[in-house]
């Protein structure tokens, strides 16, 4: 079965995210109130052929650990659904 896996890679909280800071400043300049924090990461969408949604998720988790995210600086979140 084809499984669509959504990966979100987010810079680890506590680390300086200059892109997020620049956006936060721009939002404040536009007059949007109440933006406490902005962090900019990456969204990666994969379509994986696997025996189950769980198997696809496990496979993509391994991909994140090896390549898609850098454990030194980034966290990742997975969501899998039948494609």
């Amino acid at each position: 079965m084809n499984v669509r896996v959504h990966v979100r890679v987010i810079p680890r909280s506590g680390l300086l995210d200059p892109q997020g800071q620049a956006i936060a400043h721009a939002l404040a300049a536009l007059g949007f109130p109440g933006v406490a924090d902005v962090r900019v990461g990456k969204a990666i969408e994969l379509t994986v052929d696997a025996v189950s949604t769980a198997a696809a998720e496990a496979s993509v988790r391994s991909m994140c650990e090896r390549l898609l995210a850098n454990p030194v600086t980034e966290d990742f979140i997975l969501e899998a659904e039948p494609a």
Binding site: P18, A22, V72, T73
Partner: peptide, 11 residues
Amino acid sequence: LPGALQHNAQQ
């Protein structure tokens, strides 16, 4: 080597 290299602070 340990650590990582990130976008320059000034972007």
